[in-house]
């Protein structure tokens, strides 16, 4: 490890320590961004000098201040909603029928099930109760088709 590499590693470790209370995924994001910035800025140094590295790190700023900025970004300011008149309607249209539709299907299914159970029960009762009473049995069989789920 060269002196310059050490400077960079020390700086990144200081940011890591200062941002220790930030959720790991965000902290890793931040460190990756800073590492990438330093690598790109180093590539522009010709020749690479210690002073050059120090300037890059100075411009990035105090690790504590960067950590504060990252902390503030955890609770972003209420971003103005993206105003797209078509969107909220479209989103509601997409979401609305989803929930309403599901409830409707459940209600219809419950009714269908109820009628089927009633019809079967009635059929069983009539069949067991009286042999000659064919009339009501026919009615019950007629009641079957509407009780089938539509479509």
């Amino acid at each position: 490890m060269t002196m310059n590499d050490e400077l960079v590693a020390e700086y990144l470790a200081a940011v890591d320590r200062a941002a220790a209370d930030i959720p790991p995924s965000r902290r890793q994001d931040l460190l990756a961004d800073l590492r990438e910035h330093i690598a790109a800025a180093r590539a522009e140094l010709d020749p690479e000098t210690e002073a050059g590295i120090r300037t890059i790190l100075d411009r990035l700023g105090d690790p504590a201040v960067i950590a504060t900025a990252a902390r503030l970004d955890l609770t972003p300011p209420p971003a103005p909603p993206v105003p797209q008149p078509i969107r909220p309607g479209a989103a509601a249209a997409r979401r609305g029928p989803g929930i309403v539709g599901r409830i409707l299907i459940a209600v219809v299914a419950a009714f269908v099930l109820f009628f089927v159970v009633c019809a079967v029960g009635l059929l069983a009762y009539r069949t067991a109760g009286g042999g000659p009473r064919t009339g009501p049995v026919t009615v019950v069989t007629d009641a079957h088709p509407p009780s089938r789920p539509p479509g």
Binding site: V15, R26, D29, L30, D33, L34, H37, R59, L60, G61, D62, P63, V65, I66, T68, A69, A70, L72, D73, P76
Partner: peptide, 20 residues
């Protein structure tokens, strides 16, 4: 952005915002 001192404290403070 870092060159605009009225807008930023240092270059490094911009990265959390870019991430957001």
């Amino acid at each position: 952005l870092g060159a605009e001192t009225a807008l930023t404290t240092s270059e490094g403070t911009i990265y959390p915002m870019l991430s957001r």
